[in-house]
Design a protein around this nucleic acid. Structure first.
Length: 549
RNA sequence: GGCCCCGUGGUCAAGCGGUUAAGACAUCGCCCUUUCACGGCGGAGACAUGGGUUCGAUUCCCGUCGGGGUCACCA
């Protein structure tokens, strides 16, 4: 009996690795093309951090005419969730992140390097595991969970590094005949790597983002095939990314410390290792401490949250890009109208340490993103949002689309568009007062400001209606009349005039126009009042002013 | 605890041996044909700390402190 026999006994039905090496030839791509992937577990939940790395991966691959594929890592059957894959695909799609290859639904994939679902690649991993066993680079281990537990306790008591290595590696040197015996007796086992590493030696790696990092060599005989026959993450990573021609592994930096294991795996398997890009996580402040955005505690960790809040995906992407490369901001300043596709993202310019998530900044970006949309676009997005999250708003928007478009068009499309909408979930308060059937039938709480004497207000409004209000005026004339009105009541025509000589006036034109504004809309802050009146129309303006007094 | 990474204003961050130490968000003040926004101008606000190396350290080295990651038949 030799190692080949043992390997045959363990994996009798798998193909030789040469089959796979031929089946998946090297990719024929231009110089510098990046091939990378997004490789989530199908838990259905897409974390903002996942979206972040997917966005970066998508961006650097299109920039270099490379390939971006979606591989599903479902080797842990306990954690699987129904329709998890579809959920991921849909989530990415909402952000315009479309893979070039990979899964397209729960079971099927497209592309020449598939399957792209790890559970469907079982025999591939086993072929490579078999190869390692044949070459004495891996072996079966018969330890039970209890045994391992006991070992760990002993190691802790002895204050040595825990794990399966060196003298602790019970089955590392088990004679093959004994191993074969145990297998024939039906004992459960797993396959471990026979690590050639020595933890006394140091290895240096160059991470594209982190730069040089030094680790002790891996000397742990890590598990490569679990008792259910599926590979561990580490082994699947090495086999898949080799076969799929991945040039860059872009992933969260929680993986940084397994670099020695991964690089060793590539070396043992005779593969060329990819470049690694470990990206820093997005953090959150919690009682003075920083921690990763948590699925359980932080709603904003879920990509779903942004849709629910009505924050445009464009805005989320801009925010993420802003975290990724801080020069994005400067680029955006110089290229106000450009698509983010034109921005060149550089992996090596990414930050080494994690950034605190800043909702205020996101919303700031969001309001400028929205300010650039035309009325029609705003209408469509707002309606799409209302469709799933707000029936009443949907009704409001759909009742008279033409009128709504006019409302949304106020102070939009000009040099300095309004920036008061940062998310669709708050758009209601920006437009609702413009609808007569709601405004006129509602009890309004008019909160007048500087001028709040009821008689005075009544006089001002009446005088305005009788003497100055004329919708056919152009804006200048309209405003001149507002000044005339002010003067008539003892208020300065110009703010400057008032400031120069405050004793001479009761106030200024701003105070008067505020009275009209509040009477007209019930609100102290609205967009340009002239435009509002134009949209409202004569009847409405008069009805509203009369209602106020 | 071992190992690894990181430490510039409240936040995100440029700078990487000699700078008045950029910029953005937030904040405060002023200005801008009516409010609020927008926009413009300006203010306040930072190189964790102690030692080296150097003519000179935010930048290089070491220690300390602080933060994060990781130590599974989970990814």
């Amino acid at each position: 009996m030799d190692y080949k026999d043992l390997a045959d006994l363990i994996f009798p039905d798998v193909k030789d690795v040469s089959y796979y090496e031929e089946k998946y030839p090297r990719r024929n791509l231009p110089e510098g093309a990046i091939v990378t992937r997004f490789a989530p577990s199908p838990t259905g939940f897409v974390h903002i951090g996942g979206l972040y790395s997917a966005l970066i991966a998508r961006k650097v691959t299109t920039q270099t005419n490379g390939v971006f594929f979606l591989r599903v890592e479902d080797t842990d059957q306990k954690r699987e969730v129904e329709n998890g894959i579809t959920g991921i695909i849909e989530a990415l799609k909402k952000f315009d992140i479309i893979p070039d290859e990979g899964m397209k639904n729960e079971e099927e994939s497209f592309g020449d390097y598939g399957p792209y679902k790890q559970s469907q690649r079982k025999e591939i991993y086993q072929a490579y595991a078999k190869y390692l066993i044949e070459n004495r680079l891996a072996y079966p281990c018969f330890c039970t969970a209890e045994e391992l537990d006991e070992m760990r306790k002993k190691q802790e008591a002895a204050k040595v590094i825990p794990g399966y290595y060196g003298v602790w590696a019970k089955y590392r040197n088990l004679p093959i005949t004994e191993a074969a015996e145990k297998i024939k007796n039906g004992e459960e086992y797993i396959i471990r790597l026979k690590s050639p590493g020595d933890s006394e030696r140091k290895v240096k790696f160059k991470d594209v983002i982190k730069g040089n990092v030094t680790f002790p060599e891996n000397n742990q005989d890590i598990v490569i095939i679990k008792s259910d026959g599926l590979p561990t993450y580490h082994f699947a990573h090495a086999v898949d990314d080799h076969l799929m021609g991945t040039t860059h592994v872009i992933r969260g930096d929680e993986w940084l410390s397994s670099l020695p294991v991964h690089v060793q795996l590539f070396q043992v398997l005779g593969f060329k290792a990819p470049k690694y890009c470990h990206i820093a996580p997005i953090l959150k402040e919690d009682n003075g401490a920083k921690r990763k955005l948590s699925k359980r505690k932080d709603p904003e960790a879920a990509v779903e949250y942004y849709a629910k809040e009505g924050i445009p995906s464009d805005a989320v992407k801009e925010y993420l890009l802003n975290i990724a490369n801080s020069n994005f901001e400067q680029w955006r300043k110089q290229n106000k109208e450009a698509s983010i596709d034109e921005f060149e993202l550089l992996l090596n310019k990414m930050s080494v340490s994690g950034a605190l998530f800043d909702m205020i900044k996101l919303l700031d970006i969001s309001k400028t993103v929205i300010s650039k949309y035309d009325a029609k676009t705003v209408y469509n997005y707002a309606l799409a949002w209302a469709n799933t999250y707000d029936d009443d708003l949907k009704e409001l928007l759909e009742k008279d689309p033409e009128y709504t478009l006019k409302v949304l068009g106020i102070e939009r499309g000009n040099e300095k568009p309004r920036k008061d909408i940062s998310k669709w979930s708050t758009i209601r308060e920006n437009i609702e007062y413009m609808y007569d059937d709601r405004f006129l039938n509602q009890k309004i709480d008019y909160e007048y400001q500087k001028i709040n004497d009821k008689e005075e207000i009544k006089n001002i409004v009446n005088t305005y209606i009788d003497k100055y209000f004329d919708l056919s005026d152009d804006k200048n004339t309209w405003f001149e009349k507002m000044k005339d009105l002010s003067e008539e009541f003892g208020y300065a025509r110009e703010v400057k005039e008032f400031k120069a000589n405050p004793e001479a006036f009761k106030g200024h034109v701003g105070d008067i126009s505020t009275v009209i504004r509040i009477s007209l809309t019930g609100k102290a802050n609205t967009p340009d009042m002239y435009e509002i009146m134009q949209v409202l129309g004569k009847d409405s303006v008069i009805k509203r002013l009369k209602k106020a007094i």
